[in-house]
């Protein structure tokens, strides 16, 4: 069964990325600050895309859509 922890994970990821981004921007490292955004987006996609693939697979199997 899929649990709801992914939502809390994504929220925590957003908070962490925001903090690191602000920190790096204050330190004058704008390129690293942008890099944190990219890494955060990549982590979120890595977590969400398998779920989306599972949704499509389940829909295909339940609706007998081959």
């Amino acid at each position: 069964m899929i649990d709801a922890s992914l939502i809390f994970f994504l929220t925590g990821l957003a908070i962490a990325v925001t903090i690191v981004h602000t920190f790096l921007k204050q330190a004058g490292r704008d390129e690293y600050a942008y890099l944190t955004l990219v890494v955060g987006l990549a982590i979120a996609l890595i977590k969400v895309l398998p779920l989306l693939a599972e949704l499509f697979a389940q829909v295909q199997s339940v609706f007998k859509l081959y």
Partner: peptide, 25 residues
């Protein structure tokens, strides 16, 4: 809450994940 921060993309992905979880249940 997330929309106000630096990653508004996640404000799109959280409802997406929630919708997927709801439908899978």
């Amino acid at each position: 809450f997330v929309k106000e921060g630096k990653m508004p993309v996640l404000a799109l992905m959280i409802p997406l994940a929630a919708g997927i979880i709801l439908f899978l249940r």
